[in-house]
Design a protein around this nucleic acid. Structure first.
Length: 550
RNA sequence: GGCCUGGUGGUCAAGCGGCUAAGACACCGCCCUUUCACGGCGGUAACACGGGUUCGAUUCCCGUCCAGGUCACCA
């Protein structure tokens, strides 16, 4: 009928045709099997764990196959956009070690499939919508918010499905005169898709994560173009991922419900739909109810990516943890390949859970301890220095005052087959080594039960002149045994266990007294190593201080 | 309410017609050990429920229940 006329009426300024646009987006020349993936966040100023979770899937899929991983900005909702949002997105992914091959960048963008900001693609979307109008597959709708609300209420009352369909689609078949009249008045309008779908029909779909499934056809005349001429997510997704050659769309399972709309749109446009991987929602255990629930922005600080840096989690720890959530066989692989880079792991969507992923901070901490235990002291030093500079300036000053000493301390028990695992967070460094700094040294001179003050004093006084920076842990312990003999303790722990009544205690009590004097507490890494780092002068003064306090 | 997805120990999870139903975290115990950390050994603990199909169901089908998602001019 007058589709042609209607199209001109709605889009007088659009002179390009779909073919012109297609010509600007040639097919990608990529090796066989290479995947093209993308992340498409909105610049709302809030980056959450789910963003990173999905991005890791995208990145692995692309780079593991020699494909392309790009960044597109979904800035179609001006109300939610914040200033600096794009920079924040780019900075955040960069800080987690994820790099884009093309897409939006700090200054403009890179790649031949742009623009990569949806707000700059209005003409493209409108060209396609215009052609849809010409084909009778789209039409303007002048319904006001309150009219739509009224329809919703009516549907609620009659227990009908919600939405714009059937006789509720009041502008679907209006005569062109009505449309011209509204246009003449300057009434705002949206452009809707004319759906031919029926809810009785099912569509088969094979999802990369969920596997085979059946969904119901969409019968809603969904909005293609909002009244400001900017497309909705649904339409932008279809147009962009077609033009930009995305081969796999990774997104949260909350999108599953609108999948029929997307499939329908791809078909109407005559395009091949990409493959989809709908990832399970990130959940957590609610400490109040004990049940599972979605991570919430308001209640759960750990949802925000900024949380991890502030708390002192290392980047590789967070990434490794996400990978353990993502692929059930990752942990097994990691145990077999403790030192291999994470990216050597053969990631597969087949191993992704369809049932959900529960965020477990204990598990994260465990992964983190393992990751840090495999790092060399130098790297740990650098990381803590950087973190503390931003988050704990006072500690940073002490930590970096004598780098050799600090690194020496971090090196204790590091590097062997059974490395110490004391640190899960960079912020653990302070309680782990605070006693090394006089400024933070707040000793608790409570002695073990078996050791009296007199004994403690005798042990310390005996040890004081014998201390030698150059002792080894073994030769130091020989001295402990000798002192044990002198003071009535057993130099041999087995002997003590056999005849506890003959001794005041085992040799361990003797070295514990020294440890308490030096570290001001009952646990610390290897004592002789610690004392060697402190140096004779400091050791002597600590011994004196403790003797005086007893 | 409609539509969709999921339901294996406290948690993450292998297994997908026949097994004493892996493994990891957490927890408990023991061992190692001059403390701690590490490491070693062991332990508690699970197939949501009810019907089918089958010689046999955790695995397949149906129903129930439970959980989550979604039904915007937000993504």
């Amino acid at each position: 009928m007058d589709n042609q006329k209607l199209a001109e009426l709605l889009f007088p300024n659009i002179t390009s045709a779909p073919e012109d646009i297609e010509a600007r987006y040639p097919r990608r020349e990529l090796p066989e099997g290479a995947k093209v993936t993308r992340i498409a966040p909105s610049p709302t100023g809030f980056m959450h764990l789910g963003n990173l979770y999905g991005a890791l899937v995208d990145e692995r899929l692309a780079h593991q196959s020699g494909g392309i991983f790009y960044l597109r900005i979904e800035d179609t909702d001006k109300k939610r956009e914040v200033e600096g949002g794009v920079k924040m997105i780019i900075d955040t992914f960069h800080s987690f070690g994820l790099s884009f091959d093309e897409g939006a960048a700090l200054d403009g963008e890179t790649g031949n499939y742009g623009p990569y900001r949806q707000s700059q693609r209005a003409e493209i979307y409108q060209t396609y919508v215009k052609s849809l109008v010409q084909r009778g597959l789209a039409y303007p709708c002048f319904c006001t918010e309150s009219e739509l609300e009224a329809a919703h209420k009516e549907q609620e009352q009659k227990k009908e499905n919600f939405g714009y369909y059937g006789h509720y689609a009041v502008w679907r078949d209006r005569p062109i005169e009505d449309i011209e009249a509204e246009l003449g008045k300057g009434s705002p309008y949206v452009v809707r898709f004319r759906s031919e779908g029926k809810i009785e029909n099912k569509i088969r779909h094979e999802d990369l994560v969920k596997g085979k499934m059946e969904v119901t056809e969409n019968d809603q005349d969904i909005v293609l173009l909002k009244s400001d001429g900017i497309p909705t997510y649904h339409f932008a997704h279809v147009v962009d991922d077609h033009l930009m050659g995305t081969s796999i769309v990774v997104r949260g399972e909350e999108w599953l419900a609108t999948l029929p709309v997307h499939l329908q749109l791809f078909r109407a446009m005559g395009w091949k739909a990409p493959k989809y991987a709908h990832t399970a929602q990130l959940m957590k255990l609610d400490p109040e109810t004990g049940g599972k629930r979605k991570l919430s922005k308001r209640k759960d600080p750990e949802l925000a990516l900024s949380y991890y840096y502030k708390e002192g989690y290392s980047v590789p720890a967070v990434m490794e943890y996400l990978m353990t959530l993502l692929n059930s066989n990752f942990e097994e692989w990691r145990r077999a390949n403790p030192d291999a880079p994470m990216n050597d792991f053969p990631f597969s969507t087949k191993k992704m859970s369809a049932s959900g992923a529960l965020f477990d901070i204990d598990k994260l901490n465990d992964v983190s301890k393992n990751v840090i235990s495999h790092m060399i002291a130098e790297a740990v030093y650098e990381s803590i220095a950087k973190w503390s500079a931003d988050n704990d300036p006072d500690f940073h000053a002490l930590f970096t005052r004598d780098p050799e000493m600090t690194k020496g301390y971090l090196a204790i028990g590091r590097g062997g087959k059974k490395p110490r695992k004391d640190l899960a967070l960079w912020s653990d460094a302070k309680p782990y080594m605070d006693f090394m700094f006089d400024e933070l040294f707040t000793p608790d001179y409570t002695m073990p039960e078996r050791v009296s003050s007199e004994d403690a004093k005798a042990i310390l006084t005996a040890f004081k002149p014998q201390f030698d920076e150059n002792d080894t842990p073994d030769s130091f312990f020989e001295k402990m045994k000798a002192i044990a003999e002198q003071t009535g303790f057993a130099s041999d722990t087995k002997a003590y266990k056999e005849h506890p009544e003959q001794y005041k205690g085992p040799v361990g009590d003797v070295s514990m007294v020294i440890r308490i004097a030096i570290a001001g507490r009952q646990n610390a890494p290897d004592l002789q190593s610690v004392m060697k780092l402190m140096g004779n002068k400091k050791v002597q003064s600590r011994l004196e201080r403790c003797i005086a306090a007893l």
